[in-house]
Structures are given as structure tokens and as C-alpha cells.
């Protein structure tokens, strides 16, 4: 297990390196120069081409890509994420706070997605073909296909404009003011959780259905266990594998959702930072954010793999 972990961690680092290199190169292959975009978006009338060149030099953008990448790697190695080209802020300081915010919302959404999705999936599987199954399946399809900004608009209309029970924008960390944080988080979490709920419901339904047909479930029934015990003890754990696998990809979904949700509800997280920096070609910010997101995804996949062993004792690591 120990050597397996070390090997996987090394793999994870390799993946992060490869992703960071690809992002690094791809960002620079996209049309558009950040310095030019800075000039045109900010109406910097006093910037002469000479000053633009000087700025490009100062930011190290005039060097060959390989050199830029190595220099950036070195910086990252020292924990220095660099400075935003468009706005001159220290990326590390900025990300530090934003990661927490995105994590809070993302984690809550993930947890809700998992719990609600698994519960609904089990109910649908057990009551297959019944009314509740049909209702939930339709809702799950809506949840999967409806764009999250649209759901957000509906929620805002209902809870903010009509009922006046939830605040429209802003975010407070729960340990600062729990009540306020809760109110501000409900809509963002709901919108983010919708996709995960829908996906998890569908996955749970189908994998529970599959397990329900397994011989050992029949054995469990033959033992005289009641439905609850059969499902919870014998079905769920075995149906969990594909659901756990799904959680790895769920992260992508949540990160993707955070981009929309953070923009709509004015939440200072990583998602809004990523979109804005992508659009303005703020290379160092995009690089820093993608490296962190890649790390989160890679590590959570590792976690998922380790979880497998707990779920299915047949799996061994070597």
C-alpha cells in the first residue's frame, strides 16, 4: 500500500506537470496578447509601443516558451505563483482565500449531491416503474440538461424577487457569521448540487438495479432480512463502486458549475477568477488556477482509488 501510494503520488505530480505544460503552451497559442488586451481594455492612452515592450519584458513574456515555462516551474516550486498581468495582484494571496470559498460551496454541493442523489437513486431502483421513479427520473433529466444559469434565474426570481427570503449576492464564510453564510450559500449550493444530484441519482438507480439482480441479494433475502437491511447492507455497498467512480468526475462538474454560480451570485471563488483570467489572457492566473484545480482533481481521483479497496475487498494494491 505504501509503495503504491508513493507511486500514485508521483504519477499525480507527473499529471499536474503535463497539464500545466499543456495549459502553458495552449494559452500562448491562443490568439491575443495580454499586454495588447490590457491596452485596449483599459484605454491606456499613454502606453507607447516601447512601454508595451518594456512591460512584456518585465513580465517575461518576450522569452521563448520553454524558458518561460521553466522559470515559472521554478517559481511554483518556491510557492510563488507570480503576479497577475492584467491587475498586478499577488496570485498566491488571492488564491489562498478563494480556494476556501470554492471548496466550501463545492464540498457542500458535493455532499448534498451524494446524499440526495444516492437516496433518490435507491428509492427509484426499489420502486422501479412506480410513480415516484417516473417523477424523479424526469426531474433528474431536467437537472442534467437544464443549464445552471437558468436554474439560478428561477431561484433568484422565486427566493429573492418574490419571497424576499434569500440575499441575491455575496458570500460570508460560515465561521465568520453562520446564519448569514447559510442564507447566502443556499442558492449557490443548490444550483451547483443540481447536476451532481441528477447524475448520482441516475447512476445509483442503475447500479442498484443491477445489484438487486445479483445472487447474493437473493441470498440476503433468503436470510430473512427486511428490505431496509437488504438494501443498506447488501445492495448499497456493492452498488457504490460506480457511484464512487462517478464522484471523481463530479468534481469537474462542480468546478464547472462554480464558474457560473460564482459569477451570478458574486462569490469570490476560484471559478470566477478562472473565467475572468481566461478571457483576459492573464496567463499566470490561468496557470495557477488550473494547476490547483488539476491537483484537486488528481488527488480526489487518488482518493477514489483508495476508497475502492475499502468498498470492494477483492481489489488489492501493489
Amino acid at each position: 500500500m505504501g509503495s503504491y501510494l508513493i507511486r500514485r503520488l508521483l504519477q499525480a505530480i507527473l499529471v499536474i506537470l503535463v497539464v500545466s505544460f499543456l495549459v502553458f503552451v495552449l494559452m500562448r497559442m491562443l490568439p491575443g496578447d495580454p499586454i495588447e488586451m490590457l491596452i485596449s481594455s483599459s484605454m491606456l492612452t499613454d502606453y507607447t509601443p516601447e512601454m508595451m515592450d518594456a512591460l512584456r519584458h518585465e513580465k517575461g513574456l518576450d522569452q521563448p516558451i520553454g524558458v518561460q515555462y521553466l522559470r515559472w516551474l521554478g517559481q511554483m516550486g518556491r510557492g510563488d505563483f507570480g503576479t497577475s498581468i492584467m491587475q498586478n495582484y499577488n496570485i498566491r494571496n488571492e488564491i489562498k482565500d478563494r480556494v476556501v470559498v470554492t471548496m466550501m460551496i463545492g464540498f457542500a454541493a458535493w455532499l448534498i449531491g451524494l446524499i440526495v442523489g444516492v437516496l433518490l437513486g435507491i428509492i427509484c431502483a426499489i420502486r422501479r416503474g412506480k410513480l415516484i421513479d417516473n417523477i424523479v427520473s424526469v426531474l433528474a433529466n431536467i437537472g442534467l440538461t437544464a443549464p445552471s444559469f437558468w436554474i439560478a434565474i428561477l431561484l433568484v426570481y422565486l427566493f429573492v424577487m418574490k419571497l424576499h427570503v434569500l440575499p441575491l449576492y455575496g458570500y460570508t464564510l460560515p465561521w465568520v457569521d453562520f446564519g448569514k453564510s447559510l442564507k447566502q450559500s443556499i442558492m449557490p449550493i443548490l444550483v451547483t448540487a443540481l447536476g451532481p444530484i441528477a447524475t448520482t441519482t441516475r447512476q445509483t438507480r442503475s447500479s442498484v438495479l443491477e445489484v438487486l439482480n445479483e445472487d447474493y441479494v437473493r441470498t440476503a433475502w433468503s436470510k430473512g432480512l427486511n428490505e431496509k437491511k437488504v438494501v443498506m447492507k447488501h445492495v448499497l455497498k456493492n452498488a457504490l463502486m460506480p457511484i464512487v467512480t462517478l464522484q471523481g468526475t463530479m468534481l469537474r462538474m462542480i468546478i464547472g458549475g462554480s464558474v457560473v454560480v460564482e459569477t451570478i451570485f458574486v462569490i469570490p471563488g476560484m471559478g470566477s477568477m478562472l473565467t475572468k483570467s481566461m478571457l483576459s489572457h492573464d496567463y499566470p492566473v490561468v496557470q495557477a488556477v488550473t494547476v490547483i484545480m488539476t491537483a484537486v482533481v488528481v488527488l480526489s481521483n487518488l482518493l477514489v482509488d483508495i476508497l475502492y479497496a475499502w468498498i470492494d475487498p477483492r481489489i488489492q494494491y501493489s
Binding site: 445479483e214 445472487d215 447474493y216 437473493r218 441470498t219 456493492n238 475487498p313
Partner: peptide, 11 residues
């Protein structure tokens, strides 16, 4: 049951 391989819960 007939199938010893699958009639026990693997987990």
C-alpha cells in the same frame, strides 16, 4: 443456492 461464486456478498 446453486452458485457458490456469486451467492455470497463479495463486500
Amino acid at each position: 443456492f446453486q452458485e457458490p461464486m456469486t451467492s455470497l456478498n463479495p463486500a
